[in-house]
Structure formats: structure tokens, C-alpha cells
């Protein structure tokens, strides 16, 4: 997968001030720092970085205990940004996310207590445990990038990225996010169990010279600043996209609506997301332009949470990813 762009030798001679090259180097540095702590989850790390570069939000699915918190902490440390975590529970109130105004008895005036949403990286654990009202408050923050308390808008420092986790289990006492709301997440990454070799490395790393069993993020160095990230987000938008690829993205998204066995297909936001993410992916890989392969690669995480299957397919045990795979195989790719 990684060799996609490497196989295309760049024809322009590298000038020193090439912003793409600089970004690529910086991102690689960030990536290497994160990988010191997060082992064997390269795919998830890349998706998180793509989401960060595309200025979007990430929905992570996977069984608990695979290092979701560690991933977010590591990114925050590597980009020297702030990090907060909210555990969503059935009794979480909207103001627990956003913050609230309170009356200060001493100088008899209203003061604002900012909630955990005022941060760079927000880990929202198990969003489907909280009732719709609270979920809505988080989704609103994600969309607006600002919080209104007492009628006063408070702007959240950028970059701002929400990494929300959702358990794959369907369980009583969970409030599934409506599909329309899920659309606000740019990407949906899955965290899988690490391979045996990675697991070995993890065990080795933790047990050697460490007390306790928590992963250490101490060795991660801050190699970038939030400002760098903002600059890189801008560079990412400058990655060039051929017209045939816009058409391809539209074809793919439309196919999700017309495909047999799909209850709801992806909305127009998905097309935007495909292009934005493909650009970010290219920047991450050190390329300069998007190819159909980039779009194909990013299509599954972009589309997975935006569509749902009909009841028949669900009973048959077909997964959304299977259908996306079929779509990618059969929707005509731009080829000459």
C-alpha cells in the first residue's frame, strides 16, 4: 500500500523550499514519534494523521483495550497540543462537554467554566453511551468549532480534532448515533488486534525498564506545533486533483446510493470527504497529486460509516466493507 506514490518518480528537481517536501518530512517525524508508543497500529495512526491534516474528525471502532487513548495522547504530545478525554455515560449532560456559566459569589458576576471540549485533541470515549442530547452537543462543537455559553460564542483553538470511539457491540443501554450525525465524522478507522510480532514488541517495550503496565508517552518528543499543523492543513488543500478524479469520486458515492442491498447510501458530504482525505493521504505519503489509487485506498474508511445495509443483507451476514469492496471493484476507475 505504501508504495503507491513512491513508484512515481517526481520529475521536478527538488527545490529546498518545496512546501510539500517539508510537510512530508514533518509528518514523517510526527509519525515516527507516535510509533514509538503506538506499535502495530500503523493503519490507525495513518488514519488519525489523515484526519488531522484534512481538518476533520475521526470515528474509531474497535474492542476496548487496544490503545485508543494512547494513540490520541501520543499525537497530542508529538504536536505539542492539548488533550482531553471524556468518557460518555448515560447520565452525561451537554454542559459536561461544553462547559457552563456559573455565578461567582465573591465578585457577583457570571464566569465561564470551560468544558473539556476546549482543547486541540478531544477523545470522546464511547459516544454511543450518552443520550442523543449530549451527543448532539458534541456534534455541534465538531461542526461549528465554537461553543455558545450564555449566548456568548467561544471559539475553540485550532487545530481541533475529535476522536470518538464507538463499540462495535450492540448492547442495551446504547444510543446509536443517527446516520445523519455520523456523516460529520470525516473518517471511520478500525483498531484491530496487533499482529503477533507487534504484540511481542509491545510487551518487550513495556516490561523493560518500566514499572507498572501503562504505556509511556514520555519518550515521545514534540516535533511540531499546533501552528505547523495549521500550515500543513493549508498545504494539503494545494495538492492537485485531476478533473477525472472528481468525476470518479462522485461516481463512487452515487454508486453507494444505487447499489442493490443498500438501505441508505452516502450523502454529498462523502464526495467532499473523499477528495479531502485523498489529498491529506497524498501529503502524508509525500506525493504532490492525487491518483485514483489514493481515492480507492481512502474510500473504505470514508464511506463505511455513511451507509447502511438493508435488513436482508444484514441477516445474510454481509458487511458494509464487503459492499464497498464490490463497489470499488466495479465502478469504473478513470483510465485514459
Amino acid at each position: 500500500m505504501n508504495e503507491t506514490n513512491d513508484s512515481i518518480p517526481s520529475q521536478t528537481t527538488e527545490t529546498k523550499a518545496d512546501p510539500f517536501q517539508l510537510c512530508h518530512q514533518k509528518i514523517q517525524a510526527i509519525r515516527n514519534q507516535i510509533k514509538k508508543a503506538v506499535i502495530g497500529q500503523d493503519q490507525a495512526v495513518d488514519m488519525a494523521l489523515v484526519s488531522l491534516l484534512a481538518a476533520g474528525h475521526l470515528l474509531i471502532e474497535g474492542v476496548p483495550g487496544l490503545g485508543k487513548t494512547l494513540l490520541v495522547k501520543s499525537i497530542a504530545k508529538a504536536i505539542s497540543g492539548d488533550f482531553t478525554r471524556i468518557q460518555f455515560t448515560p447520565d452525561l449532560m451537554p454542559s459536561d462537554v461544553t462547559g457552563h456559566a456559573f455565578f461567582d459569589q465573591k465578585d457577583s458576576s457570571f464566569k465561564i467554566r470551560k468544558g473539556p471540549a476546549f482543547t486541540n485533541l478531544l477523545l470522546a470515549d464511547e459516544i454511543n453511551r450518552a443520550p442523543a442530547k449530549t451527543q448532539a452537543s458534541l456534534l455541534e462543537v465538531m461542526q461549528e468549532q465554537q461553543i455558545t455559553i450564555e449566548g456568548q460564542p467561544h471559539i475553540i483553538d485550532k487545530p481541533f480534532m475529535v476522536l470518538a470511539t464507538q463499540n462495535p457491540l450492540e448492547q442495551e443501554g446504547t444510543y446509536a448515533l443517527p446516520e445523519a450525525e455520523l456523516d460529520r465524522f470525516l473518517l471511520n478507522a478500525t483498531i484491530e488486534y496487533p499482529e503477533a510480532s507487534s504484540e511481542e514488541a509491545i510487551v518487550k517495550m513495556i516490561t523493560e525498564g518500566h514499572v507498572g503496565d501503562s504505556f509511556a508517552t514520555e519518550q515521545i518528543e514534540a516535533v511540531a506545533s499546533p501552528k505547523d499543523i495549521l500550515a500543513m492543513q493549508k498545504v494539503a488543500t494545494k495538492i492537485s486533483v485531476d478533473d477525472s478524479l472528481y468525476a470518479y469520486a462522485v461516481r463512487l458515492v452515487q454508486a453507494t446510493r444505487q447499489w442493490p442491498g443498500i438501505r441508505t447510501g452516502a450523502g454529498p458530504r462523502a464526495t467532499l470527504a473523499l477528495i479531502r482525505c485523498a489529498k491529506a493521504l497524498v501529503l502524508l505519503r509525500g506525493g504532490r497529486f492525487v491518483t485514483p489509487d489514493d481515492i480507492k485506498q481512502i474510500a473504505t474508511p470514508v464511506l463505511r460509516h455513511r451507509m447502511s445495509l438493508s435488513a436482508e443483507l444484514e441477516i445474510e451476514g454481509v458487511k458494509v466493507t464487503n459492499v464497498i469492496h464490490d463497489i470499488l471493484e466495479q465502478v469504473e476507475a478513470p483510465r485514459g
Binding site: K296, E329, E332, R335
Partner: peptide
Amino acid sequence: FEDGFTELEC
């Protein structure tokens, strides 16, 4: 070649 194959896949 499947319909959805890109140049690289071909």
C-alpha cells in the same frame, strides 16, 4: 481487468 481497476492495479 475489473472495471474498477486503476492503472496501477492493471
